[in-house]
């Protein structure tokens, strides 16, 4: 009897918490398709007033598709750098004996401890003034180009592979590069998925760095242009709420969909190391 009450309490607690967590999303998605998003509780379940106009409204001020494209280029650049160079580094760390491996390992651990906020000013000086990469995709991508967490994930996965396979391939005279791409990579496809997911959210959601480095609105990723809309344009617009929610929905959706599709690849250990300490 008491057990049962405990179970009920547990479900009640979880359901209440889940409602609190999910409500802002509900509000966002519904509001994005409403002519005037509600501010009163009695109209939280709207039956009329549906529209796609909010997307048009925000598109007319920040070029929604262009911004999405910029987000995509920024994210794709980071993914490309991480998957190629991160994979090679992870393979070397796990499977190859070379001078400097221990030092590289120490560096990987140290990188996790450097806060980006400390690097913000010197990186800004270096990339805009030193490299002259202000207002370029390359300048946006560079600080994120190889995700260290991904290198860790690759290293873990490559270490778990049976060593006889590599031995055999080497005896057969296969080059290391060939071993990587024809033997190792096909065996660590789950690692690739995890890396792509973990790496994707970083640049897609990133605001501070692209905000610092892009003055040119046609280069800004969606997170930056939406923020500009919220902080500057919205005040001078008659009914900005629907447009803000439409922009927020557009920015949130790709990640939410990826997460729901690949939920099982997000495990605590992977995500845990994704957070920089």
């Amino acid at each position: 009897m008491r057990r049962q009450r405990g179970t009920w309490l547990r479900y009640l607690l979880l359901t209440l918490a889940a409602a609190v967590f999910a409500f802002p999303f509900y509000f966002m998605v519904v509001g994005a398709f409403q002519e005037s998003p509600t501010n009163t509780p009695d109209r939280l379940l709207p039956t009329s007033g549906w529209t796609l106009g909010n997307f048009g409204a925000i598109d007319s001020r920040i070029d929604l598709l262009g911004s999405l494209g910029n987000s995509l280029i920024f994210t794709a650049g980071v993914l490309l750098g991480t998957v190629t160079f991160g994979l090679l580094a992870g393979y070397a760390m796990a499977r190859l004996d070379f001078r400097g491996r221990g030092a590289t390992w120490v560096l990987m651990l140290l990188v996790q401890m450097v806060p980006f906020q400390l690097l913000m000013i010197p990186l800004y000086v270096q990339i805009t003034r030193g490299f002259g990469l202000g207002d370029t995709y390359l300048g946006m991508i560079l600080p994120f180009a190889i995700n260290t967490t991904a290198v860790f994930i690759f290293t873990q996965f490559f270490r778990a592979l049976p060593q006889e396979m590599f031995e055999a391939a080497r005896i057969d005279g296969a080059s290391e590069l060939r071993i990587v791409f024809s033997i190792a990579v096909p065996l660590v496809k789950p690692a690739l998925t995890t890396v792509v997911l973990v790496t994707f959210i970083g640049p897609w959601n990133e605001f501070l760095w692209p905000f610092l480095i892009t003055k040119d609105a046609t280069l800004q990723p969606l997170a930056v242009s939406l923020a500009n809309y919220i902080s500057n344009v919205a005040q001078s617009t008659a009914n900005p709420n629907g447009a803000i929610l439409a922009g927020a929905t557009t920015l949130a959706f790709p990640v939410v969909i990826l997460f729901c599709l690949f939920q099982r690849y997000f495990t605590a250990s992977n995500i845990g190391s994704a957070v920089k300490g």
Partner: peptide, 8 residues
């Protein structure tokens, strides 16, 4: 993204 949620 924080920017989305801040908007909401």
């Amino acid at each position: 993204a924080s920017v989305s949620l801040v908007g909401v």
